[in-house]
Nucleic acid binder design. Structure first.
Lengths: 286, 286
DNA sequence: CGCATAATGTAATAAAACTACATAAATTGA
DNA sequence: TCAATTTATGTAGTTTTATTACATTATGCG
């Protein structure tokens, strides 16, 4: 996996390079992105060396030639550099801002995908699959996420409830016990009311699982934390991308539980789907 | 940003491509990695088309030429996101299925991004920005989406409420009037209770906006429909990708309203953010 | 059916990359 | 220090690769 490290490799090899190779290295290190778009002639001119020198440079770093080197370099730039989120500007029009919002969301998901907390997911699935009851707690935007989770786990046939009422949360947290999973959802992990409820639940025999930011007070109060990296400030005023990532993580957990429970679940899901049939207009009507 | 999405873009553009371009597309989709290492001649031969056809193909997808296209393709492969939706299999383990779920969601968003109903969004923003009151109606999974929307529009300072109670929906729909926007959210657009409520609302002076599938009964009952293409059967038993797209569309609408209302809104949002300050543990504590 | 337009291919041209070889610089040992 | 030798770099020619302009073929329409 020398993908992200090609530039590092070059820069640390700098002292061992021949004079002309070093010149090439410097030009590339100075603006790697430009390098990926240059031809060998342009790069050679920029470095004041001959074309074959550039070629030799490429081969030295494991590429089969200049084009191959450019390819590797381009790849390494993707994984190394964070994707740029494009902030919506005040004078964006309807042709611009929807695309930006989608892009930002997509980028957030791609990034989250790259840093999936597999072990935490595994552990959480373990707890959820064994749970006799699941309580989802969330406030504000996370209340909607919790509601979505409730709906999803309900379909799996697990007794589940959601709460966005602080008093209810405290009462339920206090009276929770073995077999219960109390699941907290919070972007910041710093909402006092939620952290307090988590502490109350933590004192019982129930399992406290949280979906939140690493190193937050909420994480400390949990038996199992699914940590999401703090997103950039795209979410400045209205939380957007963060909750989408949360939702997909919850999809993941629900899927994990489904898989863990095995085949028996599918008939159950099919039955629920069937039960909704009569509430709908068939595709032919109207 | 077409980083993670070049292959998805190609794949979803497939039906609109000319015969020779489609041949090229298929060869690339079949083994994208090989494509990044091929010359234009090799690729043309593999696809049984002429070299200029390959070149035209590349330009169609925004590249300046074949080498540039290869570069973009290589970059898009780095993220590891697969371009096609991959169903979760019964014997997938924790290293597999989370990635699949993220991939599917990302792909759904990329596709939705490509077919953004700009005019409908514009129209809906128009209505929402003028609204004196907004009512969000949704059932099941869409209830969670509605709740999220409520939260978001509430922050914009618009009187708003959400309902997932059929009777409440009917009463509110009937008594709605000028200045009201009744916003229906439904993946299928065929849920009877919801369609009936939409018809009741339609009979009033209120504006009925819906976020649903094209040609559905719900769409017919609306003044303005934001049509989402029916997603693939990834959502077979548990709705996943469809609701994510809905959420991002609602983000888009909220953003559109914000922009339409102009600068004045930002202080309002900042104030709300400020009001939440005291409910949180500061980053230093704990 | 014949015209018009679009789609694709052919062949020539230009650009880019690579190779073999030549020259220049550096290193070594007498 | 100065040849001899090795190593580094550049030159020029060759080959590969990509692009352009134009010709041909296919497609759709009146």
């Amino acid at each position: 996996m020398d993908n992200a490290s090609l530039l590092t490799t070059i820069s640390s090899a700098l002292p061992d390079l021949k004079k002309s190779e070093a010149k090439v290295a410097n030009v590339i290190l100075q603006d790697p992105d430009a390098a990926t778009r240059s031809s060998i002639a342009v790069l050679a001119a920029a470095a004041n060396v001959s074309e074959p020198s550039v070629n030799r440079f490429c081969k030295r770093f494991g590429a089969s030639g200049f084009p191959d080197f450019k390819l590797q370099l381009a790849k390494s730039l993707v994984s190394g550099v964070r994707y740029m989120s494009r902030a919506v500007e005040m004078n964006d029009d309807v042709n611009t801002y929807p695309g930006k919002l989608f892009d930002n969301t997509i980028n957030a998901l791609v990034q989250a995908r790259q840093a999936l907390p597999i072990t935490a997911i595994e552990e959480a699935v373990e707890h959820l699959a064994k749970a006799k009851r699941i309580l989802f707690f969330g406030l504000g935007t996370s209340a909607a996420v919790a509601k979505d989770a409730e709906h999803k786990f309900f379909r799996l046939g697990i007794p589940v409830s959601t709460h966005d009422d602080i008093l209810m949360m405290r009462m339920l947290a206090t009276s929770a016990g073995a077999g219960d999973v109390v699941f907290f959802i919070s972007h910041t992990g710093r909402t006092k009311a939620l952290v307090e409820a988590a502490n109350l639940a933590h004192a019982t025999d129930a399992i406290v699982v949280s979906l939140t930011t690493a190193d937050s007070p909420l994480a400390s109060a949990s038996d199992c934390t699914i940590e999401l990296s703090d997103t950039e400030n795209t979410d400045e005023y209205l939380p957007m991308t963060s909750r989408i990532v949360q939702l997909v993580i919850l999809d993941t957990l629900a899927t994990g539980v489904t898989l863990k429970r095995g085949e028996t679940l599918l008939p159950h899901l099919a039955r629920i789907k069937q039960s909704l049939q009569d509430t709908r207009f068939s595709s032919d009507e109207s």
